[in-house]
């Protein structure tokens, strides 16, 4: 299968300026991620807040420059090129942003914002452009009259759908979805996920689906990747493996935290002996999870685990497995 987007050991750290010392503190967000996304094989990226999911997503969408490493799109590096060179690629790399309340220019109507995307990538007449906007708005379940509204006149859910419409209007090949449904209520959530699925089947869109809702993942994605502290700790091909069949202790912790559907099965959301801490060790030479891990050994403190294949399409970075 054709590799669409790929990251080669990328790292991103943000600099924090201290008030009195000249030394800049580095805050790592993404810590060496190599991820291959094949065409037609959507990846779900799961992890807790602050684990670097969004940063990785933005880098893969070519909106942020990695500190180290490279991002490739169809074999071409997009991690360090100018906006002008990026322009022709933009048609095929789009992003659905997380915070829909601030991603629309307040002085533009929704229609103008979507038209901007179309006009920047395609030469179309005014009529065709309007037609496209109306089609996509209908597809995301918005009335066509919303094209004339300003972003502040829409509710959160409507804005989120407009946000999705803007990203998908060109039918790009690769879309980074940064928590596209987390601000929507459940009925809408289903509707939007179905929409994403439909458009994927219709136009062959591949998603990098960033979420913290594990239930969404199998619905849209073929591969699930779990991120912890800026690293991918587990990657499962959902076609060949069951989603429940996870091995990394952190993934088990995540799964144990899904609320039970049957009252009788309610449990406390902890694994025994999970240490209640969110401290992440600041070293590159240990497993970043060992402080919270119930099974850690000497080796976890001294050596960083690498991703290794344990079953067909199932990778885990853990010494114990």
């Amino acid at each position: 299968m054709e590799v669409l987007a790929e990251t080669l050991n990328i790292r991103k750290s943000y600099e924090k300026q201290n008030l009195f010392s000249k030394k800049k503190e580095k805050v790592p967000a993404v810590n060496g991620v190599s991820l291959k996304i094949q065409k037609g094989c959507s990846v779900g990226l799961v992890g807790e807040s602050g684990s670097g999911k969004s940063t990785l997503g933005r880098m893969m969408a070519g909106l942020e420059t990695p500190t180290e490493g490279q991002v490739l799109f169809r074999g071409q590096s997009i991690s360090n090129i100018s906006l002008r060179k990026m322009r022709p690629l933009r048609r095929n790399i789009q992003m659905i942003f997380q915070n829909s309340s601030s991603v629309f220019d307040p002085s533009y109507t929704i229609g103008e914002s979507i038209a901007e995307v179309i006009k920047n990538s395609e030469k179309v007449s005014k009529k065709e452009c309007l037609g496209k906007i109306e089609t996509i708005l209908e597809q995301v379940g918005l009335d066509t009259s919303y094209a004339q509204r300003y972003p502040k006149e829409l509710s959160g859910g409507q804005r989120q759908r407009a946000n999705i419409a803007r990203a998908l209007v060109l039918h790009p090949e690769f879309v980074v979805c940064d928590e596209p449904v987390s601000s929507l209520d459940y009925s809408l959530r289903k509707q939007v996920l179905t929409l994403l699925n439909d458009l994927r089947n219709k136009f062959g869109i591949t998603y990098l689906f960033i979420t913290h809702d594990l239930n969404c993942v199998p619905y849209v994605c073929d591969i699930m990747a779990i991120m912890y502290a800026g690293k991918i700790v587990e990657q499962i091909d959902l076609k060949n493996n069951s989603m429940q069949n996870t091995l990394h202790p952190y993934t088990s912790l995540l799964f144990s935290c899904i609320p039970a559907k049957v009252p009788a099965e309610r449990k406390k959301c902890t694994i025994e002996s999970i240490i209640d801490t969110t401290v992440i060790p600041d070293s590159n030479h240990c497993c970043r999870f060992f402080l919270r891990c119930p099974h850690y050994t000497e080796r976890c403190i001294n050596e960083e685990p690498l991703l290794k294949e344990v079953a067909n399409g199932h990778f885990v970075a853990c010494h114990i497995v």
Binding site: R58, L63, M95, F97, P106, V117, N120, S121
Partner: peptide, 11 residues
């Protein structure tokens, strides 16, 4: 954020 979105829109 909308400046980032504008970049994503190939501006």
């Amino acid at each position: 954020d909308f400046i980032l979105a504008a970049k994503a829109a190939a501006c």
